[in-house]
């Protein structure tokens, strides 16, 4: 069943240049959809439209047969979202923040507290659960964000660069978790520019460039059509970004210049 559908999404900020233009895709239940593209290609903009934080200039986001604006509250009850920036309240402790989010989501208190403690433990944050978030490192904040998105067992997960700042172990845990949740039948949209992870985790991939989808399909197929051995090479082939080896040589020569 279709969990989320984007129809001809277009977003122009103040400038007339579109950050995202005419983007359409379907996210099925049990599907992990990868969203890749260079910096500034419009991934986060798309995600914000999908969560209802940003109003599309054209097009619509449809969930369960209705446009999401028609019942944002119910839509968001089913949604777990990890934003690209971990801009959390520095004066709350990690536990207090999660308790706040859970309460605002009207989760029953008893099970909420049990869940929070278990999650903090599993994400190795329990030693710091009572310290202020202001003193957390980037990776710790990111883990708090992840827990906040998972607490209510959402049917739809939208993750914008969820691994940023995470150490290897935590990143592995999250990668496995995404796979597992996909198998459980949850619909997951995974945004990233780390291609190795996308290749391993996602069943389908959309490649964005300058706000347009330039490829859409399973990673294996993208590699086949591009005639490359890995998604990274296929990506480099698809996205015109100049010659990276040449750029590296140029940087080195600027560095050593007097």
């Amino acid at each position: 069943m279709v969990a989320l559908e984007a129809r001809h999404l277009t977003k122009c900020y103040y400038s007339t240049v579109a950050a995202v233009s005419d983007l359409s895709f379907c996210l099925q239940e049990g599907e992990v959809l990868g969203f890749v593209g260079p910096n500034g290609s419009g991934k986060s903009t798309t995600v914000k439209m999908l969560t209802g934080l940003l109003e599309p200039t054209h097009g619509q986001v449809v969930s369960r047969g209705a446009r999401i604006e028609q019942d944002l509250v119910h839509y968001r009850e089913r949604l777990g979202y990890v934003p690209e920036e971990a801009d959390l309240y520095p004066f709350l402790s990690g536990r207090e923040y999660l308790e706040l989010v859970g309460t605002l989501r009207s989760l029953p208190r008893q099970s909420l507290e049990r869940k929070i403690d278990a999650m903090l433990d599993l994400f190795s944050l329990s030693a710091h659960r009572h310290s202020a978030i202001g003193s957390y490192s980037k990776g710790m904040r990111q883990r708090v964000l992840l827990i906040a998105a998972l607490l209510h067992d959402p049917a739809l997960l939208i993750l914008d660069e969820p691994l940023s700042g995470l150490d290897v172990t935590s990143a592995m845990v999250v990668k496995n978790l995404i796979k597992k949740l996909g198998e459980q039948g949850k619909a997951i949209l995974y945004c990233s520019h780390v291609l190795e992870v996308v290749e391993k985790v996602c069943g389908t991939v959309i490649v964005l460039q300058k706000g347009r989808a330039i490829a859409y399909g399973p990673p294996s197929e993208l590699m086949k059509t591009a005639g490359q051995a890995s998604l990274e090479h296929a990506f480099a082939h698809l996205v015109e970004g100049g010659d990276s080896a040449q750029t590296a040589r140029d940087i080195a020569s600027v560095m050593s210049a007097a």
Partner: peptide, 14 residues
């Protein structure tokens, strides 16, 4: 402010 938007706006609050 913006921080409140980042933290609260995506929650199911009327």
């Amino acid at each position: 402010d913006r921080r409140d938007h980042a933290n609260l706006a995506h929650l199911p609050i009327l």
